[in-house]
Amino acid sequence: MSRFIFEIDGQKWFKEQVTDEIGHSLRIDNILFEGEVDHQHLIVFENEVFGRLFALEGFIQVSTRDEFIYHEMLVHVPLFAHGNAKRVLVIGGGDGGAIREVFRHQTVEHCTMVEIEGSVVDFSKEWFPTISDGAFDDPRLNLVIADGAKFVKDTDQKFDVILVDSTDPVGPGKVLFTEEFYRDCRPCLTEEGIMITQCGLPFLQPNELRTAYLNQKASFEAPTFYSIAVPAYSGGIMTLGFARAGGENPDLETLSERVKSANIHPFRYYSAAAHQGAFALPAYISHILDTGEFG
């Protein structure tokens, strides 16, 4: 039995140790896959509440029951804020959930997805096919197996929206939170382009949020953040970075009109009201952005 699985009264439990002081557990109803890749522990298991889950080195990465919250808000906030996005770049996102939501927009003509490991895509297709829901077969997709940071540094392509669907800033994902990476993303955006970044759980990771903010501020005039709550991610509200190359953010009436005309219902989480409300940050998060300290 691995260091992330323990047994109580004949039942197996998965333990996620979020910090040195905090952890939580999920009952394992069925283990579908468990192994080691590059000295990292991988497990796919089922839980009655969360459905099918994937954990990497002891941390939950995705759950089939609540992934719609993250993916809908990651994608539809920038696409509706832009209003006419035709070219989208996804960095990371190997589970296919982001491109699934991107391709619901008929205005999108092209999407490049850059994933550092092709095995991540293959793994997701095998164990989590409902998340991508056929998106890898969409003819608008250009799948590139490469380093996302190197891709934005070297490419001369322009995109209306860049989605950085990354892990936390450890290991290979660390470079996707640096000032250099954000600086390289900036010229890849069109005149009114938008970049979205995954910025963690500020209640437990205030330094991660503050660092992302300062690094983005070096290349973008007014980066801001919006929040979502994904039940499978222990630690409360999650923040997503929102940085514009130019243009204005639409008001609620304009957003509502765009959502209605897009005709891509039903959403399970996203709405024009949820979009606008997500930018109303709790005071403690604003304090972290201002001072780097938990308020």
Rank of each mutant, 00 (worst) to 15 (best):
F50I: 08
L26P: 00
D290M: 10
P250D: 03
I131L: 04
C111T: 14
F242L: 12
F267W: 03
V230R: 00
L289E: 03
T291G: 05
L42A: 03
A274D: 09
V230I: 13
A229D: 15
R52G: 11
V90S: 04
R244H: 08
I131Y: 04
A245F: 03
D156T: 11
L53I: 10
A149D: 01
N249P: 00
V44M: 06
L281G: 03
L201T: 09
A274N: 10
M195W: 10
G118M: 10
P206W: 02
G247Q: 06
D122N: 11
F6L: 15
I8M: 08
A245N: 11
L204A: 15
N263G: 14
A273W: 10
A55L: 04
C199P: 07
N263L: 14
L176N: 00
L163I: 12
A85P: 00
I145M: 03
I99Y: 01
R27W: 09
D66P: 05
R268L: 15
N30G: 13
T167R: 10
G295P: 04
T64M: 11
I99M: 14
D156Y: 04
D38E: 15
F225K: 06
S271A: 12
P202W: 06
V259A: 08
A262I: 10
E191F: 11
G241V: 05
Y70K: 02
A262T: 07
A280D: 14
G295K: 13
I69Y: 08
G83D: 07
D251G: 14
G92P: 05
A212W: 02
E46Q: 14
V120P: 03
H41R: 13
L214Q: 14
S63F: 03
H110W: 06
Q106K: 15
G148F: 00
G92I: 02
I162C: 06
L143S: 01
F68C: 06
F68H: 00
D137S: 11
G83N: 06
G241F: 03
C111Y: 05
D133E: 12
A229T: 13
H41V: 11
G247H: 02
D156W: 06
A280F: 12
T112I: 13
T190Q: 12
G173Q: 10
C199M: 13
A273I: 13
G171Y: 05
